[in-house]
Design a binder for these strands. Sequence first.
DNA 1: CCGCATCCCCAAGGATACTG
DNA 2: CAGTATCCTTGGGGATGCGG
Lengths: 125, 125
Amino acid sequence: MAIIGEITEKHRLSSPECKQQMMPVQDALDILHGKWKLLILMSLSTGPMRFKEIQRQVEGITAKMLSKELKDLEINELVQRTVYDTIPVAVEYTRTPYGNSLKKVIDELHAWGVQHRKRVMRRSN
Amino acid sequence: MAIIGEITEKHRLSSPECKQQMMPVQDALDILHGKWKLLILMSLSTGPMRFKEIQRQVEGITAKMLSKELKDLEINELVQRTVYDTIPVAVEYTRTPYGNSLKKVIDELHAWGVQHRKRVMRRSN
DNA sequence: CCGCATCCCCAAGGATACTG
DNA sequence: CAGTATCCTTGGGGATGCGG
């Protein structure tokens, strides 16, 4: 029980700094939350993409969701929308430089996902 | 319009590989989704932590959610739960080595959040 | 102190049909 | 092709209260 008390005390002291560390993460999650946003950004990693193209790449997303998520991403300046005045209209979506700044985040998440998948495979055998 | 056709064609070709890249990310998001999981993992970065301690650090989370999220994290072996047979019982949560493997992901998200906050501040002035 | 049980609400998300 | 509109379901999340 003494050990518990010690541990508790130790971390209560470091609490304020911990909260400071969390705020930025909370900010990031606010913008990137949901099932789709990061996947959409990924699909734009190779270059501009049209609506249907993105929908094909991001498996399972409905037009409604894609439309909404793209709007959100545009508001946060992670994605740019360009309309070409053709018939029928063509719309291209591009990652902005700011959107590209998420590359590392996505890369790390991807790397973790890869090894996680391996791990799950291993355990299920 | 020619340019559109070209762009479309180019990326349709790279589509299969893109989907491959997305699956791991989707896996990762499945485990880490929601408002709280990453924040909880962050709060455990400095060492073992008791239930109430975590709740104090993760601002705004209710006991119910914390309980549920900790269970999920335990199932996925990112967090370990230890019960001390004291009166009243004390329960400690620790990041497993596997949970620690998410450090880079969290770090990148944190780094992005920090600069995002700066950016938002700048624009609102 | 560490939760679980219950009730409740709302936003996220899905299905389908439809327009310019 | 690029979405909107509508309706619907699910579950994330909050509030409160209780039990070991």
